[in-house]
Amino acid sequence: MKKFSYLIIFLLIVTTQSCGIYSFTGTTINPNVKTVQIDYFPNNAILVEPSLSQEFTIRFQDLFTTQTNLTSVKSGGDLQFEGEITGYKINPMTATADQTAAQNRLTITVNVRFYNNIVEEDNFERTFSHYYDFDANAQLTGSILDDAFNEILERITQDIFNASVAKW
């Protein structure tokens, strides 16, 4: 029975320690990283939706607050994010028999510069983009705009999070 106890303890140690630093959110943040700085993302797109910059920035900050134990700071963060919204466009996607649009697509594109001041090899500058399709007869206002923002911003912020701290 004593051998069995040692075997269980050994297996527990091996399985919890073999993966190194791991969290249940999938992040692999260096233990020396304590703070995150997420700057305001201005909207530099040709077509400007007034609330987009603020909504994107807040959602991105909230993602780090809920998914990590990092402290949010205004400057000098161990992890730093900056960038701008570079695209906000609506394009027709499918046509009807009488050659009118049946569906439109809203696409939002964000350029991100990520600096890891602890592990500088992780630094990158990348563009992230996602879209939302909606009926061509509908106006992109109210609940349709809210649904579009919810889907697009959730996907883009999660993609940035995965690229920076989850290494996906």
Results as ranks from 00 to 15, higher is better:
E55C: 00
L70Q: 10
Y40K: 12
Q99S: 12
I8W: 03
Q67H: 13
S5Q: 05
I38V: 11
A101L: 08
V14T: 15
T25E: 12
N111C: 00
F149E: 03
N116D: 12
Y22V: 15
T35Y: 03
F81R: 06
I90R: 11
E151T: 14
T86N: 11
D39A: 11
T109W: 02
A102V: 02
D146H: 04
S129Y: 01
N32R: 14
F161Q: 12
I156P: 07
L52K: 05
P31I: 13
M1V: 10
K2N: 06
A97V: 11
L7P: 07
A95T: 14
F114H: 05
V165G: 00
D98H: 05
E84Q: 13
T28R: 07
E84H: 11
K74M: 11
L79D: 08
S72K: 15
R126E: 11
I160V: 15
Q61T: 08
S51P: 01
C19Y: 11
E125Y: 00
T86V: 14
V119W: 00
Q80F: 00
E120K: 13
F4P: 02
G26A: 04
T28A: 05
S51F: 04
L63Y: 02
R113M: 07
S5H: 04
S72D: 00
K74H: 07
S18V: 08
T25P: 01
A101E: 04
E82F: 01
I156H: 06
T109V: 10
D159K: 07
A95K: 12
I156D: 03
T66M: 11
A148Q: 09
N123C: 10
I90K: 06
T100A: 06
S75W: 00
A163Y: 02
V48K: 13
T65Y: 11
S129K: 08
V33P: 05
L106H: 01
F124K: 07
G77I: 06
A102K: 15
T94L: 10
N32M: 14
F56L: 13
I46N: 08
T57C: 10
T96H: 00
L12I: 06
I144S: 01
S51C: 02
E125P: 01
Q80T: 15
A102G: 07
T25F: 03
T107D: 02
A102R: 14
M93D: 08
N137F: 12
L106N: 07
S164Q: 12
V36R: 02
M1I: 12
F124W: 05
N150D: 13
P42V: 13
D135V: 03
T65V: 14
N111P: 00
V165T: 06
Q17E: 02
D98G: 03
R155P: 04
A95S: 09
